[in-house]
Design a protein around this nucleic acid. Structure first.
Length: 327
DNA sequence: AAATAACTCAACCGCAGTAAA
DNA sequence: ATTTACTGCGGTTGAGTTATT
């Protein structure tokens, strides 16, 4: 089982292939009709490379049936759908995309598609809504924590059913809200150097989206003189947060907006649950039956959840879907 | 215009499975 | 039964390119 490195492989060239090397490899395989033994190919073809390097160069780059260029929207959808069922089985996924190599798909996934899912608040590993968004999902509960609808954001909080002094209840709830947002802000701060592999990048995006769409100008919450030096919105719930009455007004005006976004996050969690607890083989069997069902379901259900009547989900492209739903 | 950061992707590495000796 | 060779796969790297400051 243990494969020892070949003695002959020492001193062989590594790194990028030259056009001359490419031509030698192409000429040899075309002349032979097949690559034959990869191990012996380099010596016969006059290449100072190991067989493994030759095989990789051929299968990932020189093979005549390789489709080059950008991935189409259909290919993207198919990759996402296949990945949700098969995971990182790149070679298996590549069999469903003629002309695309497993390496190319893997690279495209890591550099592009993962980001797309992150932007949607979906974990690219599990294809489910990220679990730390549970915090956000509880937001509506906080907003309507008493029998009165939206009691927290209702300016009539003085009618507290708890029998507590109005300002006490009000302060307590605001503090909960403040703590919640501070936790999220703290999490987002880790992603300052945004990278595709940064696990917190999505948190930053989600939070920024929430804040940018629902927070009032900073001065609404703070009368401190140095507030203008802070990024708009980003510190509204920080230490300078001192005017609950203004917050009530803000929350009342934006509760619908916040609820819609949270509803979307909640629904995105349910989208692909049906594919759980199914073996890889079973999942593969599903592929041919409905190759884009997951992504279609995703857009349809999210649109339903948000009740955006101005969107036509049947004609919605993948990009449009992301743009319109998320941003 | 230069420096720096971020991104892309071809290529490499190590492991695992299998066939052959 | 054990060892060795070969192939394929998935994770990772780093040089080159592009974007940003």
């Amino acid at each position: 089982m243990v494969r020892s490195p070949s003695r002959e492989e020492t001193g062989l060239k590594k790194g990028p292939w030259t056009p001359e090397e490419d031509q030698k490899l192409i000429d040899y395989i075309q002349k032979q009709g097949s690559h034959g033994s990869w191990r012996h190919l380099p010596r016969i073809a006059g290449l100072n490379r190991c067989g493994k390097s030759c095989r990789l160069r051929w299968t990932n780059y020189l093979r005549p049936d390789i489709k080059r260029g950008k991935f189409s929207e259909e290919e993207e959808k198919l990759i996402i759908n296949l990945h949700s069922m098969l995971g990182n089985k790149w070679s298996l996924i590549s069999t469903k995309l003629p002309g695309r190599t497993d390496n190319e798909i893997k690279n495209y996934w890591n550099t592009h598609l993962k980001k797309k899912l992150l932007l949607m608040g979906i974990d690219p590993v599990t294809h489910r809504r990220r679990t730390d968004l549970e915090l956000l999902a509880n937001f509506p509960k906080l907003l309507s924590s008493s029998s009165n609808s939206c009691s927290l954001i209702n300016p009539l909080m003085e009618n507290s059913t708890l029998g507590l002094p109005t300002d006490t209840v009000q302060l307590a709830r605001i503090q909960i809200m403040q703590a919640l947002l501070q936790v999220l802000l703290k999490a987002s701060s880790f992603s300052s150097s945004s990278s595709s592999s940064n696990p917190n990048a999505y948190s930053n995006l989600v939070l920024n989206n929430l804040l940018s769409s629902s927070l009032p100008p900073l001065q609404t919450f703070s009368d401190s003189s140095n507030s203008s030096s802070l990024p708009p919105g980003t510190s509204a719930f920080g230490e300078s947060f001192q005017t609950p009455t203004s917050y009530q007004d803000f929350a009342a005006q934006n509760s619908e907006n916040i609820s819609k976004q949270l509803l979307f996050y909640s629904n995105s969690n349910n989208m692909l649950e049906s594919s759980e607890n199914i073996s890889v083989d079973q999942k593969q069997d599903q592929i041919d039956l409905n190759e884009t069902s997951a992504t279609k379901s995703m857009s349809t259900r999210s649109l339903d959840a948000l009740n955006l009547s101005d969107l036509d989900d049947s004609d919605l492209s993948w990009k449009d879907f992301l743009d319109q739903i998320y941003w």
